Amino acid sequence: MPLNPIFNDLLKTDFHSMYSMSIDEFRDYYLKSWDDFKGDVIEVGSVINHTVQTSKRDTPIRIYNTETEEDHPAFIWIHGGGFIFGSIEVYDSICRKITNNVKCTVISIDYGLSQEHKFPEPVEECYQVVRWVYENAKELNILPNKIAVGGDSVGGTIAAVITQLSRDRNEFPIVYQIEINTMFDLLGKTKPLSRKENAKGYRLETEEIEKYYVPNYLNDLSEAENPMASPIFTKTFKNLSSACIITSEYDPLRDEGEHYAKCLSEAGVDVCLKRYDGIIHGFFNMQRTLPEARDALNLVCTKLKEAFDL
């Protein structure tokens, strides 16, 4: 279907010129750019800022608790931003809504950004935070057999890798995974058509993925085919957690998301795949302005309730 006209003014912005900024300037711009789109901040039972000691760094996390005191399932959220930008603040309102809607604990990870923290540091860091949650479930009032992970954009990339590592390392279980507008194939080695069809003009552009985001994250481009970087290259998709994968029609990453969903399904994994037509990359955080974003959030909450048997 045609591009949703709600994006017309946004797409008049000269995004390409921003790549000449310093990383610090670009990070500041990125954080402020969401202010007019993200949803309202609502009250939850409690919000606790905490630090987890990982082998990579002292990792800030934010724990959102419901109003009730009994043990709850946990959803661990990993923010987007091309491995270079973003923070737990950008998705604060979304985490609050999931907490209240699902009646679960939500934990958001403020992982180290590239270039300072290059591959595979953010993956290992987030993995160790999830393991910490599992190992400290009793103190956190969390049900250790009901932990899910998810993320937006590259946050989804990391969530998918953690789900694979959980299966392979067998240190903790993951009951569900959620990936939204996710990069499963960092350099498009599987030749996704959407990287050509949506290469320019829709905010996130293919050239910038392959010449800015990925090179700033990887130590060498040969790492792009490592499954810890591009989860689509895992040796097997069998025995992975059930998944909800959300894609957008006008996103360069659309087809690799749908390819990943197909691989999971063919391996016997239960998958909910939903494409939002007329929509661009990054729409999920446009809760204030976009009905499709609110619908996607409702879908995420519904699938988490099902996974948690709530």
Rank of each mutant, 00 (worst) to 15 (best):
residue 7 F to H: 01
residue 16 H to P: 00
residue 20 S to P: 03
residue 24 D to S: 10
residue 25 E to D: 06
residue 29 Y to E: 02
residue 30 Y to M: 05
residue 37 F to T: 10
residue 38 K to E: 06
residue 53 Q to A: 08
residue 56 K to G: 08
residue 58 D to T: 06
residue 64 Y to F: 02
residue 70 E to K: 14
residue 77 W to K: 00
residue 77 W to E: 04
residue 78 I to P: 02
residue 79 H to D: 04
residue 80 G to P: 13
residue 85 F to M: 04
residue 86 G to T: 02
residue 87 S to Y: 03
residue 88 I to M: 04
residue 89 E to G: 01
residue 95 C to S: 13
residue 99 T to S: 10
residue 101 N to C: 13
residue 102 V to H: 07
residue 104 C to A: 15
residue 106 V to S: 01
residue 109 I to W: 03
residue 113 L to Y: 07
residue 118 K to Q: 00
residue 125 E to A: 06
residue 127 Y to A: 09
residue 129 V to R: 01
residue 131 R to E: 05
residue 132 W to V: 09
residue 132 W to F: 15
residue 134 Y to A: 01
residue 136 N to T: 06
residue 137 A to L: 06
residue 139 E to C: 00
residue 140 L to I: 01
residue 141 N to E: 13
residue 142 I to R: 04
residue 143 L to Y: 05
residue 143 L to N: 12
residue 147 I to P: 04
residue 150 G to C: 10
residue 150 G to M: 08
residue 157 T to F: 01
residue 165 L to V: 04
residue 166 S to N: 12
residue 167 R to S: 08
residue 168 D to N: 09
residue 168 D to Q: 08
residue 178 I to H: 00
residue 178 I to F: 01
residue 191 K to Y: 14
residue 193 L to H: 12
residue 195 R to A: 10
residue 198 N to K: 13
residue 201 G to H: 09
residue 203 R to S: 10
residue 212 Y to T: 14
residue 213 Y to C: 06
residue 213 Y to F: 15
residue 214 V to R: 09
residue 218 L to D: 09
residue 221 L to N: 12
residue 229 A to M: 11
residue 232 I to V: 14
residue 232 I to T: 07
residue 238 K to Y: 09
residue 240 L to G: 03
residue 240 L to S: 04
residue 241 S to I: 13
residue 242 S to Y: 00
residue 250 Y to C: 12
residue 250 Y to G: 09
residue 253 L to G: 05
residue 259 H to S: 14
residue 259 H to M: 15
residue 260 Y to E: 03
residue 263 C to F: 15
residue 287 Q to M: 06
residue 287 Q to T: 02
residue 290 L to A: 05
residue 290 L to G: 04
residue 291 P to T: 04
residue 296 A to M: 11
residue 299 L to R: 09
residue 307 A to Q: 03
residue 309 D to M: 13
